[in-house]
Design a protein around this nucleic acid. Sequence first.
DNA 1: GTTCGTGCAAACGGTTTGCAACAAT
DNA 2: ATTGTTGCAAACCGTTTGCACGAAC
Lengths: 135, 135
Amino acid sequence: MKPDVVRILEEHGIQASAQRVAVAEYVLHTTEHPSADKVWAGVQENFPMISRATVYNTLHLFVEKGLLRELHLAPDSVLFDPNTHRHHHFIDEESGRIYDIPWNEIEVSNAKPLPGFEVEDYQVVMRGRRRLDQP
Amino acid sequence: MKPDVVRILEEHGIQASAQRVAVAEYVLHTTEHPSADKVWAGVQENFPMISRATVYNTLHLFVEKGLLRELHLAPDSVLFDPNTHRHHHFIDEESGRIYDIPWNEIEVSNAKPLPGFEVEDYQVVMRGRRRLDQP
DNA sequence: GTTCGTGCAAACGGTTTGCAACAAT
DNA sequence: ATTGTTGCAAACCGTTTGCACGAAC
């Protein structure tokens, strides 16, 4: 029986390969929102011979096939989100870390597009920092 | 009497200079959300001798002093928003153009922070594209 | 004369690209 | 044989940095 990750790849129309499985293993089992370079570093621990270009190719392929989402929330790099369900985000401005907020925790009404446009996706983006006054 | 822009700079604790005024003129009179390089290009038309470094310095100073806000919505560069009131954004995925949505047009309830954090700012970010089926 | 602003050019870092080698079917 | 996948290194582009010059108070 095939390992889960291979099945997931195939279900998304992605031909499996050793490198792609390694990237998928890493990126689908993190709750973080890693940058491409972070993924590269992480994957290398189990798969030392993978090149940067392959990681970038693979991540873009995954996004195209709906396995990942790209986030443009940080100034310096594109982040990848293994959580493809609708959800919101909270950004800790100090650490830059990004946390998921469940979809139904925030209620948004009237998320209408501009006239002549249609909305494909929306989310609430919150920015803040740790409270120092309280534990 | 001093020109408006100089007054605005001084009100924000920014010492005026020819270059800073030129940048402010440009950036405060656009409804777009230009990147730093776009600002540089635009300012150059009226002020041909300004260097990139000065534009970057100036924009960062303006952000620090609350005259502009930085947006991290695009994959390739940081954008600057002359509108410092609270508002939401709509991103046309085709052109990359970003439009402002007035604050009260969308209702968000329960924008609570993560436990132990405090929210400094939040907004709804919508992504979409032109409708082709209807005019 | 010390502080602050500017310009230049080089460096930087994340990402993309071109191409040759390789594997799979 | 054809198609798809990978690796390498160079190129790219937005941004930052270091430093020296010049202006302002």
